[in-house]
């Protein structure tokens, strides 16, 4: 990780958390900037142009969701939000507002680093990387093919659309609403039933054991995530 010059902006009002993140991330050769309030965060993001932003949802001066919305007006820098357990609604709101991922406090360093890497990789990746390969599952977006262990898998158009959206956002949580809008059209955003049925059917086709999914992971109450290999 010596070549790592990724710049991270840490936004949290708790000094001890900022300090811990600073120590941990600096040790991994990240360049760390800090902000304690929403306003500082926006200013710092404009000034230092970080590659990724870690944003706590509970800030003293403004809501983390609001900060996300402000940032998204002018930058696509990946945002990972930090939240506490039990605030699923905030989480979804932040994701819908354009955040890329979330972490529930307390989290382990390993988990944080993995999310950071994924976020950075997504951001620096070529816009339409056509092929997703992981553990025998191969999805070729350009050719519209899905293969499991070399065998073709037949998906319905809705299932394919869902899978495609997950592949494009691989490693990132896609909310139920986003999935429904993309796969079924704008009128179906509340029709969670359809979503679950399609995901369930899709899993039966691509997962070796649908009761213990390996690829399409459920984030209960929030959405789904395609696990990166």
């Amino acid at each position: 990780m010596t070549e790592n010059e990724t710049r991270v902006l840490v936004v949290d009002d708790e000094q001890s958390i900022r300090r811990f993140l600073h120590l941990t991330l600096s040790a991994q050769n990240y360049t760390v900037f800090q902000a304690a309030t929403g306003r500082e965060a926006v200013e710092s993001a404009a000034q230092h142009k970080p590659d990724v932003i870690i944003l706590d949802l509970g800030l003293p001066d403004m809501d983390g969701v609001e900060v996300t919305r402000l940032l998204r007006q002018w930058t696509q820098t990946p945002i990972i939000v930090l939240s506490v357990r039990g605030s699923e609604t905030d989480k979804i709101a932040a994701l819908d507002a354009g955040a890329d991922d979330y972490l529930t406090k307390p989290f382990s360093t390993g988990e944080l680093l993995a999310r950071l890497r994924a976020a950075v990789r997504r951001a620096t990746r070529a816009p339409e990387e056509p092929v997703f390969v992981s553990d025998g599952l191969e999805i070729d977006i350009a050719r519209r093919t899905v293969q499991l262990n070399g065998n073709d898998v037949q998906l319905t158009p809705t299932e394919y659309n869902l899978l495609k959206l997950l592949v494009v956002n691989a490693g990132k949580v896609v909310t139920q609403r986003q999935l429904l809008r993309e796969a079924c059209g704008p009128g179906y955003e509340q029709d969670f039933h359809i979503l679950h049925v399609n995901i369930s059917n899709m899993r039966r086709k691509i997962e070796p054991d649908p009761t213990r999914p390996q690829f399409v992971i459920t984030e209960p109450g929030v959405g789904y995530r395609l696990k990166l290999g």
């Binding site: 969670f192 049925v197 992971i217 459920t218 209960p220 109450g221």
Partner: peptide
């Protein structure tokens, strides 16, 4: 309660994970 239609199979998978 954020009630939704929930697939038990899905829930079991998450719980096991």
């Amino acid at each position: 309660l954020a009630k939704q239609p929930v697939d038990i199979q899905d829930i079991v998978g998450v719980a096991l994970a």
